[in-house]
Amino acid sequence: MKGIFQIGIVLAVCLLGEFINIILPLPIPTSVLSMILLFILLLVKIIKIRHIEQFGDFLLKNMAFFFIPAGVAVIKEFDLLKNNLIPFLVICCVSTVVTFLVTAYTVKGVMALQKRMGGTRHE
C-alpha cells in the first residue's frame, strides 16, 4: 500500500507538471518541469523524503532499464548517424566528461556545505 501511495505522489507531480506545461508556454520539457516541481515541493517540505523514498530507490536501482528505448532508437536510426559518426562520438565523449566533472564538483560542493552546516538532516 505504501508503494502505491508513493507512486501516486510521483504521478501526481508529473500530472501537475504536464498541466503547468500546457498552461504556461515554457520551452521546458514536461519531465524536467516535473522534476523541478518535485524538488521545490521537497525543499519547502510539502512532500517529505519519506513519502517518495521507496519508489525513488526502486527507480534508481532499475535506472539501466530506462536507457533501453534510447539505445534502440540509436540503433534504429544508425543509417542517419553513420555519415556523422565521428562528430557524434566526439559530442558524446565530451558531454560525458563534462557531465562527470559537473557532477563531481557539485557533490564536492554539497558535501562541503553539509560539513559546514554540521552534518546532514533527514526527516
Rank of each mutant, 00 (worst) to 15 (best):
Ile91Phe: 07
Asp57Trp: 11
Phe65Gln: 03
Val72Lys: 03
Arg116Lys: 13
Val102Gly: 06
Val44Gly: 00
Ile68Tyr: 10
Leu38Asp: 04
Ile68Trp: 04
Ser34Met: 02
Ile36Phe: 15
Arg116Met: 12
Ser31Gln: 13
Ser34Arg: 00
Leu37Thr: 12
Thr120Leu: 15
Ile28Tyr: 09
Met35His: 01
Gly3Leu: 15
Thr120Lys: 12
Ile86Met: 08
Ile22Gly: 05
Asn62Lys: 15
Asn21Val: 05
Glu77Lys: 10
Leu89Gln: 05
Gln6Phe: 02
Val90Ala: 07
Lys61Gly: 07
Gly109Arg: 14
Lys82His: 06
Gly17Cys: 02
Asn62Glu: 07
Asn84Met: 15
Phe5Trp: 13
Phe78Met: 13
Thr120Trp: 08
Gln114Tyr: 15
Lys76Val: 11
Ala70Asn: 10
Met111Val: 13
Leu33Lys: 00
Lys82Asp: 03
Val94Glu: 00
Asn84Thr: 12
Ile46Gln: 09
Ile86Tyr: 07
Val72Met: 09
Thr120Asp: 07
Val110Phe: 06
Gln6Arg: 03
Leu38Val: 08
Cys92Leu: 13
Ile47Phe: 11
Thr30Ile: 08
Thr30Ala: 10
Thr30Phe: 00
Leu24Arg: 07
Gln114Gly: 11
Asp57Thr: 08
Lys2Ser: 14
Ile40Pro: 01
Leu81Asn: 02
Leu16Gln: 03
Gly71Glu: 01
Gly17Tyr: 01
Phe58Cys: 04
Gly56Leu: 01
His51Phe: 11
Phe39Met: 12
Pro29Gly: 05
Val94Ser: 04
Gly71Thr: 03
Val94Ile: 14
Leu60Gln: 10
Gly71Asn: 01
Thr103Asn: 09
Phe58Asp: 02
